[in-house]
């Protein structure tokens, strides 16, 4: 039992728990990858997390036991726990339970979301969350719908509802052939600013996931080479011009 004593019985579908994560929020973190995602981005770095039926079942207490083993490291490095996925808000009750446990243990908790989730679930999680890493992948609804099967209008509505909390950092995956051009990036930055976002992280596209697709028996057919960090400098400058604090990398 963890401290709050309110653990739901329903198990959580988890893809993996990764200690010493450095790319999902500040400091030393443990990232809990929850299973299942509503989007189907063809470059997805975690394709094994997409299927809602995949992963393994774990109980909240079990997850927290692992998370708490590194609590001292979080404290000494300004780190904490990040719930990622997949889309963690596809399991809203479990996520909220986990977040409450983190809060009770005094851990900094971040949620990485694609935003394609019911608004009430997002807002229910908000009081227990210290930081949202909120994806903005594109500024044109048709593009997001065609390529990722996402609904930009709904996502932006959620973003607007959340950004008043001041806990949002926008994450922009920089994908050549999808959004990595001046016009689209400018559009994304302007959108972010108009939603009240103050900070954005540009994530360079990489192809490390290629092997995962092979293991899953799927084709990895997104064309293009990994993007070097320094190639994103001009875009970062553009974002700063739009009024954002911009960092390259997670």
């Amino acid at each position: 039992m963890t401290s709050s004593g309110r653990l739901p019985d329903a198990p959580v579908r988890v893809s993996s728990v990764q200690r010493f994560s450095l790319h999902d929020g500040p400091g030393i973190r443990t990232t809990v990858f929850l299973q299942g995602c509503p989007l189907r981005c063809p470059w997805c770095a975690n394709p094994e997390t997409q299927d809602c039926r995949g992963g393994k079942e774990m109980h909240v207490a079990e997850i927290m036991a692992t998370v708490l083993r590194d609590a001292d490291y979080y404290r000494n490095s300004g780190g904490g726990v990040t719930f990622s996925g997949g889309e963690p808000l596809l399991q809203p009750r479990a996520l909220t339970a986990l977040l409450r446990e983190c809060k009770a243990a005094g851990l900094h908790a971040a949620v990485e979301t694609c935003g394609e989730v019911p608004k009430e679930d997002l807002l229910a999680a908000e009081p227990y969350t210290d930081l949202f890493l909120f994806d903005i992948k594109h500024c044109v609804p048709a593009e997001l719908r065609n390529v990722c099967k996402g609904n930009l209008e709904g996502i932006l509505e959620n973003l607007r509802a959340l950004s008043a909390s001041g806990k949002v950092i926008a994450r922009i995956p920089c994908i050549p052939g999808f959004n990595l051009d001046e016009q689209t990036m400018k559009g994304i930055f302007d959108l972010a600013v108009s939603m009240g976002v103050k900070e954005a992280h540009l994530l360079p596209y990489h192809t490390y996931a290629r092997d995962k697709y092979t293991q899953l028996g799927r084709n990895y057919d997104w064309p293009g080479e990994s993007v070097r960090k320094d190639a994103l400098e001009p875009f970062a400058a553009m974002g700063r011009e739009a009024g954002l604090t911009v960092r390259i990398g997670g």
Partner: peptide
Amino acid sequence: GHRDIIKGLFRTYFDR
């Protein structure tokens, strides 16, 4: 590239 992380890592290890 992550000096603060390394310091946090070592200090925590020593604390423990």
